[in-house]
């Protein structure tokens, strides 16, 4: 494992921990998109179908369990926790799931490495992960006051994607036959979606003002 990959996984882990920390300790999910969290739960559930059949490493299995467990528990908190659910911005978080899920499923049925259930689900999870942040970005744009933890959560997620791209560049030059077009293009699209957010995040940081996205 190279340093970019490890740093990418650690920022991904940090993003999830920041979000869980916010929800668990402040008992608030204000500004957090349930739609995005449900899409991530679906992403991990469809990508990690091999978790109990193919052993890659202890690290790999533990991280998969963490991402599955955290995404489903965040969804549980927002939907079921008697205090947390009250802070959910239901009227603002209006993005439709099927608007993202259906095109990704169709794309996975057409573009995949092999036409097997697992490979189609794997491609689907990559396409869906690429766009799963959209409901969250739309919600941030609508929310006038973005609290620090929510801003950091999205920043860490974007950093994780950018580090994965560096990881692929590194692996391409150091490992023979490391070519994965589906992963790379989906990953690149995903990272580009954060470009706008990053711009405003750094501007607010540079000027030391509260993060606000233009409507």
């Amino acid at each position: 494992m190279n340093i970019f990959r490890l740093a990418g996984d650690m920022t991904h882990l940090a993003s999830v921990l920041v979000l869980l920390l916010k929800i668990h300790t402040i008992k608030s999910c204000a500004g957090v998109s349930l739609k995005t969290q449900e899409l991530y739960a679906l992403v991990f559930a469809t990508r990690y179908l091999d978790i109990f059949t193919d052993f890659i490493s202890l690290y790999n299995t533990v991280m998969k369990l963490i991402f599955l467990g955290s995404s489903f528990s965040i969804v549980w908190y927002i939907r079921r926790h008697k205090i947390v659910r009250r802070s959910y911005d239901k009227d603002q978080d209006t993005f439709r799931h099927y608007f993202l899920v259906l095109p990704c499923l169709l794309l996975a049925l057409v573009i995949h490495e092999k036409f097997t259930f697992r490979e189609v689900m794997w491609a689907f999870s990559l396409y869906l992960e690429a766009v799963a942040i959209l409901p969250q970005l739309v919600l941030l744009q609508r929310t006038r006051n973005i609290d620090n933890l929510t801003g950091q959560y999205v920043f860490l997620l974007g950093a994780y994607r950018a580090l994965y791209i560096l990881n692929w560049i590194y692996r391409y030059f150091t490992e023979p036959h490391f070519v994965h077009w589906i992963t790379w293009i989906a990953g690149l699209v995903q990272t580009l979606l954060y470009a706008d957010f990053f711009y405003y995040y750094f501007e607010s940081w540079k000027n030391n003002v509260k993060l606000q996205l233009p409507a």
Partner: peptide
Amino acid sequence: DSNIDKKDEL
């Protein structure tokens, strides 16, 4: 095997 190096990522 390219299948392994693809799936060792998260």
